[in-house]
Simulated assay, not measured.
Amino acid sequence: MNDSIYFHNIQVSSKDCTKHKTIKLPNLLDHMQEAAWSNATKLGFSTIDLMENNITWVMNRMCLEILRLPEHKEEIKVETWPAAMDKYFTKRDFRVWSNDGELLVEATSNWLVMDIRERKLIAIPDYIKEANFIVDRNNISPISEKVKYIPNNTERSRDIQVSWFDIDINDHVNNIKYYQWVLDSLGGEYLDSHNLKKIDITFKHEGKYGDTFISNSFQSEESNVWMHSLDHAETGVSHIVAKSWFAE
């Protein structure tokens, strides 16, 4: 198979960047998502392809580690591939490289299939499993640690209102928005003076237009390590749990 299907080339633009001239996490994730979409399309199993059968991909979890954030005008390439599959999960891995071969970012993610009409998760259909598109490109180790939030420990909170612009092609909140919302609870002063090194996020329930959430966080016993929960304001149900690691 042509190796180029696993790579997506990007130049970091000014709109991608913070005032520090490095890429914002949501923008980096957006490029990674586009790379995944491109790869899935070439393999014949994109979201659009699945929608013809009234099903779609939904991300269940991602663990992302940042070695160095790409900088303004830097040319980078996102490598992504389907790395594993079982009855319910597919695993998709990512690496972001500089033009001279420096590894910048590494991530692994788990994906499920949802029935669009019933809005419920289903087993991966046989026709997808039989396509045999799983590859080994020095695959990243699966996520093992479980993230647990302790509500009584909450130190910081922020209210979130889902807008029409937060909804994606699957008619629910795009997963990229959740990263922004859980980290926003830390506040601009903290985010301005600390560099995100790693984030592990689990998506438990979908968000819809008009939902209101409360983004909560507390610092764990480890320095600059935070636990996060995004809770529905009316039901109290946790839609997201996450753990983030920072460096000063």
Rank of each mutant, 00 (worst) to 15 (best):
V147N: 01
I134P: 13
N152H: 06
N139T: 14
F133Q: 10
A131K: 13
R137Q: 15
D159Q: 12
K148H: 11
N152T: 10
D136R: 08
I160K: 08
N139F: 09
N138K: 14
R156P: 03
R156K: 15
V135A: 08
R137K: 15
F133I: 15
P142F: 06
P142T: 06
I134R: 14
N153V: 00
N152A: 09
I140C: 02
P151C: 04
N139D: 15
D159V: 08
N139M: 12
T154N: 02
E155Y: 05
N138I: 03
K148Y: 10
N139V: 11
N153R: 12
S141N: 11
K146L: 04
N132Q: 14
I140M: 03
A131D: 05
I160S: 08
R156N: 06
D159M: 10
K148F: 13
S144N: 11
D159I: 10
V147I: 12
N139W: 12
Y149N: 06
R156G: 01
E145F: 05
N152E: 12
N139L: 12
N153C: 10
V135Q: 10
I143S: 02
I140Q: 03
S144R: 14
V147W: 01
S144I: 12
N153A: 07
N138T: 07
D159K: 14
E145M: 05
R156V: 03
P151K: 04
I140Y: 00
A131V: 00
K146N: 09
K146H: 08
T154D: 01
E145A: 08
V135I: 14
I150V: 13
P142N: 07
N153G: 00
N138W: 05
K146E: 05
P151F: 07
A131Y: 00
S141R: 14
E145R: 13
A131P: 00
I150K: 12
K148N: 09
F133T: 09
D159E: 15
E145P: 06
V135F: 02
I143P: 00
R158F: 01
I140V: 14
N153D: 07
K146T: 06
D159S: 11
